[in-house]
Every structure is written in structure tokens, then in C-alpha cells.
Amino acid sequence: MSKSQGPMQGEAATPEQAQDWVGRVDSRTGAVSPEFAGMVMGALGHPAAPQPPIHTGAPLPVLWHWVAFPEFVPISEIATDGHPKLGGFLPPLPFGRRMWAGGKLSFKGRFAVGEAITKRSEILSVDFKTGHTGDMAFVRVGHDLRGEGGAQIREEQDIVYLPIPDQFRAPRAIAAPESPVFSEAVEVGPVRLFRYSAATYNAHRIHYDRDYATGAERYPGLVVHGPMQATLLMEAAMRHTGATPTRFSFRGVHPMFDGHLHLQAEADGPTALRLCTVAPEGHQGLQARFEWEG
């Protein structure tokens, strides 16, 4: 079967054209230098969390591989929202909002600070759906990461594309756990959000440009990064269990806004925790599951 004719430059792909992106591959090599690690530590630190060692060769905190592959895109190739323009590795879909919706990971070993890491990424699927907010699309990307010391991560990342609404409509609120095994408060003000954006080289303006977030994208405040919430939950789970994860999954169920949040957990059998971030209003923001070997 012949492939559909692709979109012209600057045009959005149709659902049929978007399938041409399935199977696209990108390979890169990166590392988390002590300098990058220091930036992440400065963005994630809070009173309950001890500072990890960040010298060359120290164990890389889990999920910090997300800063190893920044997209060094010229300003001329940045879209209005601050993301790199679509149409290269990711398909140019006809929606104004793009967000990291969730993902799942499995781990073998640990990377080290300063270690060279190779990453092979592949577009696994592009699916168009209709929900209570209207049409949307999900792009699933698979990542295989290998460190020169033998550690490996298999990751599947879900990216959601949505239309920008005329006003903010909150999703259904999911209540916080009634009896969490731990609950820690973390301040998530503008400085933390800016620092995490800088550490991850993420210029999406909803995280640091309040006028853009509230005016252009109709949010009631600055949006807390989903990956930052996942990383805070990961650190808390490892600290409270003393365990190293074998699997971890997460998904956003409600946007979280600047102010503060709580990290909470419930037991889910002998070797798993159900985790969530909780907004001041009492609803969950990001849900996760942390698993380890018994």
C-alpha cells in the first residue's frame, strides 16, 4: 500500500497522513553531567528530600535521564507555545495544545552521573479519539536507553494533543487517598517551575509565562510539569521503601498549578505503591505506580 501524500510545510497532517510517522526512528547519545545534575537537584530539592551526590560516577537518581537529551533547536524553529515546531520526528497534528500525558518504564541497573547514554526512539502509534472535551490525538513513543556500564531503561511515553478551549474546564476530580502511608508537602512556586524548565531545556510557556498560560491557553495559573511530579514521587517512594524500582508508570488526571502540592502513597500489595500528587483542593493531579522486587 502506498503512503499518503504528506502535508505541505506549515500544514497539519490529516489522520491518514499522520500514520506515515509511525515507525519513524531517532537515535541520540547524551549524558547527565554533574552540572546538569546540579540544575535538577536545585529544581527538585525540598525539606524532606536529602540532596543526592552529583559527582561524576555517582548513581544517577532514577528518572533524571530525562535531562540527558535536550533539544537544541534554533529560536527560528520554536513554535508560539515554546515547543519545537512539529513535522520532524513528531507529527504536525491539528491541535494547539501538546502535553506529556504519562508513560511507563522498566529498569535494569542504574546509570551514573556523567555516563554516556544512547537512546533509540520510535513512534509506535498515532491515534485520534473523541472525548468529553472533543477531538484529540495520542502519540506513543518508545525509547530504549543503554548506558555504557550496562544499565538499561525501556520507556513508553504518551503525548496528548488537544484543542485549546475557550475557557478552562477542570476534569473530573479524583479524591486523595483517605489514609496515605506518607504525605509530604512540596512548594511549587514560579521559581521551582522556572528552574525545572531550565534544567530540562523545556521552553513550553505554560510553566513559566503566566500571561501566556492564562491568556493563550486558558489555564488558571502556571502548570506544574508532569515529569517533575513523577520525579518527586519516585524519590519519595524510593526513600520510604528503601527499594529500587523495577517498573514505574504514571499518568496525569488533572492539571496542577503553582502554589504547593502533596506527595502521597498507598500500599498496593507487598512490593508496590500507588502514588499521587494532591492539589490544595484535595484532588489528585498525577497518579503513579511504583514496583520493586520482593
Results as ranks from 00 to 15, higher is better:
K85T: 15
G114I: 02
I164A: 08
Y201V: 11
D166G: 12
A116N: 13
D135V: 01
E122I: 06
T80N: 11
G142D: 09
T130W: 02
F107G: 01
H83M: 08
M136L: 15
E155R: 02
E122A: 02
L93F: 12
Y201D: 07
T118S: 15
T130I: 12
E122K: 07
P180T: 12
F89N: 08
V113T: 07
Y196A: 04
K119Y: 00
P91C: 03
L86E: 13
K108D: 13
F168W: 14
P163W: 04
L93E: 12
G102R: 06
R110K: 14
L193Y: 08
A101T: 09
G102F: 09
I174L: 15
P165V: 04
A175P: 01
A79W: 00
I174V: 14
P190W: 09
A151R: 07
R192W: 07
A137N: 10
R140E: 15
G109N: 02
L93I: 13
E178I: 07
P177R: 04
F168M: 13
D166C: 00
G88P: 00
H143C: 04
R120T: 14
D166S: 13
P190L: 03
V126K: 06
P91W: 03
I164F: 01
T133I: 03
V139H: 10
W100M: 06
T80W: 13
F182E: 04
T133Y: 05
L90N: 07
